[in-house]
């Protein structure tokens, strides 16, 4: 099966989504809430591509033979830029003080898209830190609600350590225990959920800022070359 994206022909296997086929072929489509080990859910909307005038999440849309898809259009560039800016203003992303800076997929996406400002007014929400776990701190200020940790803990770790609570602007991810604290779950720092965060919510205790500035993953190369931090 073959399809065409941005004028390039890509081979796809039966059941492939546009995104998985492109990833296998080494063609980069921006994404944040997708991870190869988990079923896609399509909530970040960064991987939207255009086909027959409609925008489709490439992580959910199955390839059909001969389909034509556009990803590298100016319109989609602007749309992705705005979505990235939305994620920046929604949380508290103070890159200069963030341990994940240089290794953050949100930031890397900003670099790739040439994002120079946040465009929108910032929300500056008040979000809690969860330092209850012996090995890990959760800093929800950086959370972009991709729900990868929730899904990884459910499906890869079988621990159900995280849930989404609240609705709309109040929606947030929290530890699944009765007191809402990570320390009261069976989560371990070696879990898949611990390493799957595309940004900097999960911080190991006792280590930090190990890689010098200039040598971090996305200092060295664009995310399309350097790959996903959580891969």
């Amino acid at each position: 099966m073959r399809f065409v994206i941005d004028g390039m022909t890509i081979e796809a296997q039966a059941g492939d989504t546009i995104l998985t086929a492109c990833r296998r072929a080494g063609y980069y489509i921006p994404h944040l809430c997708f991870h190869g080990d988990l079923p896609a859910q399509g909530n970040c909307r960064l991987c939207l591509v255009e086909s027959k005038g409609r925008l489709l999440p490439s992580c959910l849309t199955k390839v059909t033979d001969g389909m034509e898809v556009a990803s590298a259009t100016e319109q989609l560039h602007t749309l992705r830029l705005r979505l990235t800016q939305m994620l920046f203003v929604e949380g508290n992303h103070i890159c200069p003080s963030c341990e994940a800076s240089g290794n953050c997929m949100l930031q890397a996406l900003g670099y790739r898209l040439g994002l120079l400002d946040n465009h929108y007014p910032q929300f500056f929400p008040r979000r809690p830190l969860d330092a209850s776990h012996p090995q890990m701190i959760l800093d929800f200020n950086r959370c972009i609600q991709c729900q990868l940790c929730v899904r990884a803990s459910d499906q890869l770790d079988q621990k159900h350590a995280f849930v989404v609570a609240g609705r709309g602007g109040e929606a947030h991810i929290t530890a699944s225990s009765s007191n809402g604290q990570l320390g009261s779950t069976s989560f371990a720092a070696t879990d898949h959920a611990a390493g799957i965060c595309p940004v900097g919510v999960f911080l190991g205790k006792g280590v930090g800022y190990v890689t010098p500035i200039g040598e971090r993953r996305y200092d060295r190369a664009d995310i399309a070359q350097a790959g996903d931090r959580n891969a």
């Binding site: 399509g42 909530n43 970040c44 909307r45 960064l46 979505l83 939305m86 994620l87 203003v89 929604e90 929108y120 007014p121 929300f123 609600q145 989404v164 609240g166 609705r167 709309g168 602007g169 109040e170 929606a171």
Partner: peptide, 21 residues
């Protein structure tokens, strides 16, 4: 809409609040 957005996807979760303001 800002109140009733389910919060799942970025454009609606953030966009409805930006629009409201």
């Amino acid at each position: 809409f800002a109140h009733e957005s389910c919060g799942f996807c970025t454009p609606c979760r953030v966009g409805t609040r930006l629009q409201r303001d």
